[in-house]
Each structure stands twice: as C-alpha cells, then as structure tokens.
Design a protein around this nucleic acid. Sequence first.
DNA 1: ATCATGTCATTGACATGTCAGCCATAGGAG
DNA 2: CTCCTATGGCTGACATGTCAATGACATGAT
Lengths: 153, 153
Amino acid sequence: MAGQRNLPTRDELRTWREFVETTEALRGHLTARLQRDTGLSPGDYAVLLALSEAPGTRLRSSELATLIGWERSRLSHHLARMERRQLIRREECATDNRGAEVVLSETGAEAFRAATVPHLRAIRELFVDALTPEQLTAAGEIAAALRAHLPDR
Amino acid sequence: MAGQRNLPTRDELRTWREFVETTEALRGHLTARLQRDTGLSPGDYAVLLALSEAPGTRLRSSELATLIGWERSRLSHHLARMERRQLIRREECATDNRGAEVVLSETGAEAFRAATVPHLRAIRELFVDALTPEQLTAAGEIAAALRAHLPDR
DNA sequence: ATCATGTCATTGACATGTCAGCCATAGGAG
DNA sequence: CTCCTATGGCTGACATGTCAATGACATGAT
C-alpha cells in the first residue's frame, strides 16, 4: 500500500515552498539593491570580481566561465552587453588563435571598486544580520548537504 | 576603530556564497528536471497549480498574480506564452469590464495532472532527502527568519 | 452628470538565461 | 603534410524577467 512514500509530506512541502520562495525573494532584493546602488547586475559583479582578482586583470574567456560557474554561451552574451557599456574589453589571445581574453577596463575597475562596499553591506544586512550565529552555521551546513546531494550534472 | 563592523567577515561571506550558489544550483536542477519530465517551466507549474485549486478552475488575473506572488506584467507575458501553447484561455470578466479571467484548459489540466507526481518526487529527492530531519526543520526556520527580515517592498 | 484619481491588464523595450548549431583553430594519428 | 576530432568562442532563436508607459474602466467627490 501507499505507493507514495517517495513523495514529500504536507509539512515537507510547506517547508520547501517557504524555503524556495524566500531564497528567491532574498535574491531579488539583493539584485534590486545592487542595481540601485551601483548600476551593476549580479552577473556584472561576478565577472568584475573574477577579473579584479586575476593576474593582469585579464582572463581567458573559458577560464572566466569556469571560475564563476557559467556556461560559455551565457558568458559570451553577457560579455557582449558589458563590452557595450565599456566595463570590459575583448582582445585576441596570443597563444591560441581561437581564444579570446577578457580585460578589465578602467571604467569596469572603478565600477567594481564603488560597488564592493555597498554590496557587502547589503549581504550583511539582508542575510547575516537576519540569522542567529547558530542559524548561520546551520545555513552553511544545509547548503553543503544540498550541494553534496545534487547530481553531478 | 574598524569602520567595517557593518561588513560580513570572511567566514560569513563564504557561508553566503555557498548558500546562494547552492540554492541557485538546486533551483536549476529542479527546473531542468521539470522541463525534461513534463515540458513545463516552474512558472507554468505555479500558474497551473493555482488554477487547479481555484473554484471553477478560473481566476481573475490579479488574484492569480497575488496568489503566486508575481507582478502583473510578468503574469501577462507568461499567460500570453501559455495561451499560445493552449495551456490556458483568457476570457472577459462579467463583473468588471477592465478585468480578465484566466481559465484552465483541458490541455493545461492534463499537463498539470501529469506533472504533479514527477515534480513532487524531484522535490523529495533533491531537497527533502538531502537533509536530516533536524536540518529540514532548521531550513524552515532559517527561511522564516530571512523572510521576516526582508524589507516590506 | 462630471471630473479626478486609482485600478486592471497589456504592451514595448530591454536585460538575462538556455539550447543547439556554427566556424575557426588546435592537436594528434596516419 | 593531411585528415579527424575536440575545443573555444560566437550566434540566433527563443523563454523568462523587470520597468515604465498606456488605455480602458471603476469609483468617489462635487
């Protein structure tokens, strides 16, 4: 009987909904605030952060994609938009004629400098300050457990 | 001294990154699986679920938006796409000439019926089964704390 | 009735994301 | 060297999401 043992209970489902809706709302708030305070999207920020930390503030396109965990086509589209806004430049790669190097521009560096503190402050206010130290620890452990349980691809 | 007490520590930031990256990855896996198993997006599913539970399997557009927590313009765009796929219909509202009613179609009802079990199974496998009962409880409390701390708008 | 104001839903412009396919080049097998 | 396959990056088509503006209608004050 009960061929449904593989389905969540009502309580489990309520927890799931609360969890997923809240994490989406949190992401939305942080995105809106980053946009408002700095004019950057989360994608912009991730790209600029990776470039800022790279030697010579430049990276091969596919290395950048790996660093920030994006598919290459997504990165291509995003870099095209960022290049239009002069946040980055694309240059040919000397050692691989197929490749492209993504270079942080002065505009991009300045935008990232100006964005860092407001963005970190928002993370503090909306995430860290909302939780007790125990909850913060638990959040890290929950994330690790979820990640470990995800299929490889 | 230390004018940075309002910024997260290195550990807090690591927890944040782990948390946000994992929740996004989890959402991505569930989306891909829902799409693969049922041909529906999470947005489709949310709309069909709300309509399925509504009296007469129909709702005013703005009630639907409130129920699933979407902006109306987002809903309008999404309903246009769903109407093209015959998952829903839009009818004029008898009691308010400005309004529109969204009606579940037979195609939409059948798609939702076929999607429910696979989707719930995926939630079970990717979320519930990844956590201990204590972690699941903690996840609900963390979500509640985060939500309570979000600005109202 | 008229008017001012607010609400309902849609639309257009654009940013973001996925997917499949393309093309040039790299790199190894023969 | 020539071919074969794999890789790097780009592109087009489309789904999804936000924002501001619009038009039609409702509603209350006068």
